[in-house]
Design a protein around this nucleic acid. Sequence first.
DNA 1: TCAATAATGAGAACCGTTGTCAAACGGAGG
DNA 2: CCTCCGTTTGACAACGGTTCTCATTATTGA
Lengths: 133, 133
Amino acid sequence: MTDQGTRRPTRQRAALADELAGAAEFRSAQDIHASLTASGTRVGLATVYRNLQAMATDGEVDVIRTGDGESVYRACATAQHHHHVVCRVCGHTVEVTGDAVERWADAVAAEHGFSEVRHTLEIDGLCADCAAR
Amino acid sequence: MTDQGTRRPTRQRAALADELAGAAEFRSAQDIHASLTASGTRVGLATVYRNLQAMATDGEVDVIRTGDGESVYRACATAQHHHHVVCRVCGHTVEVTGDAVERWADAVAAEHGFSEVRHTLEIDGLCADCAAR
DNA sequence: TCAATAATGAGAACCGTTGTCAAACGGAGG
DNA sequence: CCTCCGTTTGACAACGGTTCTCATTATTGA
Ligand SMILES: [Zn+2]
Ligand SMILES: [Zn+2]
Ligand SMILES: [Zn+2]
Ligand SMILES: [Zn+2]
């Protein structure tokens, strides 16, 4: 279950984990790096990138690609497969699951002869607060 | 009805449309540019990029972002909303639709107070041919 | 045909990300 | 506690896809 191998705990990694734990939205590596720097925590940008992708492959954080091609990261509540509904304005994010969708994706792919099926699904809209504004 | 505004017809745009019409898989701008160049059709790379995104906003082609962050384009059979099942090995692509998924996405977002909901969904796997190989 | 305007192309610029490599660090053994 | 060695870090260069610039060329409508 998410074996993180021989990775050593470092001050930088801890700071990064903290930063992620306190954020409800998806954030870019550069954004996170800027926050750490602003709060006085000196961490190299390359280190932020490296650790984020290590955490991503270990399933500790979720990654999604924004429309303009940058990767954004988030420490989700659950490690299990799920999807996100993200507010286009403020970034507010909620995690959702649905067996129906999972089955549909597998079924429709199988109907066309595909195997080892995977999928990506992201939902976005205007959250209640932003719509009210 | 996808108004393409005041766009003027050009030799380059026509060549690009031809190239896309003859392809069943999603292809990158650079790939398309290389093909055009190889076949003796001189077109600037910037022009390929510009026209592809113009065609994309006009709904003439579909765009998806690959895992390594490049945009790939395809002239799909239908202009209506649909999704794709793409073979991870050969790129073979089939278009699929499913009301159930569309409704689920809207419903789950609405449950959390979101409005003006949109979604992206891509499915990938191994096509029958590649699995048999 | 002629001016007005849109499209093109070559190359530079951009920007998120990854590679480089010497210095700093953490951990197991002594 | 000290040393040794593989891991991690960080400053900076390099990379790759995409976008910008702007002078030149093509299209349109009169
Ligand atoms: Zn919002
Ligand atoms: Zn799913
Ligand atoms: Zn295949
Ligand atoms: Zn859909």
